[in-house]
Computed example of a mutant assay.
Amino acid sequence: MYEFILLFCSVAAGFLGSLLGLGGGIIIVPTLTLLFHVNIRYAIAASLISIVATSSGAAASYLKDNLTNLRVAVLLEIGTVTGAITGFLLARKIQSQALFLLFGVFLFFSSLMMLRKRGENLSAKNHPWSEKLKLASSYPNEKGEHLFYKVENVPFGLAAMYVAGVLSALLGIGSGIFKVLAMDNAMKLPMKVSSATSNFMIGVTAAASAGAFLLRGDVRPEIAAPVSVGIIIGSWLGARFMMKIPSSVIRKIFVAILTIVSIQMILRGLS
């Protein structure tokens, strides 16, 4: 029964993680710690392994379906990694309680703004950096039609990724939410492209952190193995369903997850 529940939760985490570009940790860590009473260090380590599995399981499908924008991913990863290094250096000097509260409020506000957004509102103009780096591309919608999009506010998006990396390291949370928010709101990428590109990026970020946890001995095979299997199955299913689900539905699911996370962060900041 234990293994069945863990496998089911892992499949659900992989499905939502690949669909929204968030990674499975947002579901797996609370499940392991609250439901199975796993030590938080082992839960986080298993979560990082699962994020790599999510990215690996979904990235190939999204690349095949022309949803991932590789040029945008490589550019933004520079900001995220640089921010993560900065956050690591600042981690011992800054109290995180106020940051949890402040960013929880910001995420809740962002979820309200995304809920009000109607349709994709594809950008009609390219930022000069987008022109030089050839970031504009196209993606297939649920009808199989290719929709062309351009990329706005590239410097702002890069700066947002740096801040995302800093906050991710300071708060010990995944940066998938920040990635999707920045690409969707600032750079005006379509929701499906934002999710698929974030999926590709989070695997790179999580791989480095997972290596550190592995060297420290926090990766427990009896926990990480079944979680990773379930995550891979779920991420494959999520990648298959992505092409069939309208962007508006994906946006609503993302807003629901965003609201839950923001409330958790506010409560943690107040505690």
Rank of each mutant, 00 (worst) to 15 (best):
A73P: 13
S228E: 00
R41D: 07
A208D: 03
N199S: 15
Y2E: 15
Y162N: 13
F241D: 01
R220G: 00
L267W: 06
L167Q: 12
L147S: 03
L35V: 15
K150Y: 12
F15V: 01
K192Y: 01
I51N: 08
Y62C: 04
F241G: 07
A43G: 10
A43F: 07
L133H: 05
T86Q: 00
A58F: 10
H146I: 01
G172K: 05
S61D: 12
Y162I: 10
G234Q: 04
L90S: 02
D65S: 14
S175H: 03
I173D: 05
G203Q: 00
L67P: 09
T259L: 11
L133F: 11
C9T: 10
Y162A: 15
G104A: 03
F36R: 09
N39L: 07
A136T: 06
I85P: 03
L90R: 05
G234D: 05
F8I: 11
E145W: 01
V219Q: 07
N66G: 02
P226L: 09
I177V: 15
R268E: 04
S209Y: 04
E120V: 08
P246G: 12
S47G: 15
S50Y: 04
I26G: 07
K93M: 01
A91T: 06
A225D: 01
A98S: 12
G87P: 11
